[in-house]
């Protein structure tokens, strides 16, 4: 089986991660922010799986499973919050929710 350069997988994960980060930083729509968070989580999972392959051990994949669980729970709560927010403010613009400013 031909080998894959280990760091290429990690670099892909890093690029996906920063893409998600850009999404979080630039979007105002809370749905896009949540999606960007998902991208970042997924990138982390990818990094773990790459690590798992690098060391030939399954622990990385187990961490990926944990991340998957976390993502599921996070999406459930996040979507609940989005619904509530839309009900109260009739918008998905996160900038409207800036009442906590000092």
């Amino acid at each position: 089986m031909p080998s894959i350069p280990y760091e290429h997988g990690l670099i892909l994960a890093a690029i996906l991660f920063v893409c998600g980060l850009i999404g979080v930083l630039t979007r105002r729509n809370i749905v896009f922010i949540l999606m960007s968070l998902e991208i970042m989580l997924n990138a982390c999972g990818l990094a773990f799986v790459v690590g798992s392959a690098r060391w030939g051990h399954a622990d990385g994949q187990i961490m990926f499973l944990m991340i998957l669980t976390l993502a599921a729970a996070e999406v459930a709560v996040g979507l609940g919050l989005i619904i509530q927010m839309y009900r109260r403010f009739h918008t998905v613009d996160i900038s409207v929710l800036s009442e906590m400013k000092g």
Partner: peptide, 18 residues
């Protein structure tokens, strides 16, 4: 001075985090 950083915008907090 510190109150100035508390803009209430999520993006601002995320940017400072990054």
């Amino acid at each position: 001075a510190i109150v100035l950083t508390q803009t209430g915008y999520l993006r601002w907090y995320a940017i400072s985090l990054i």
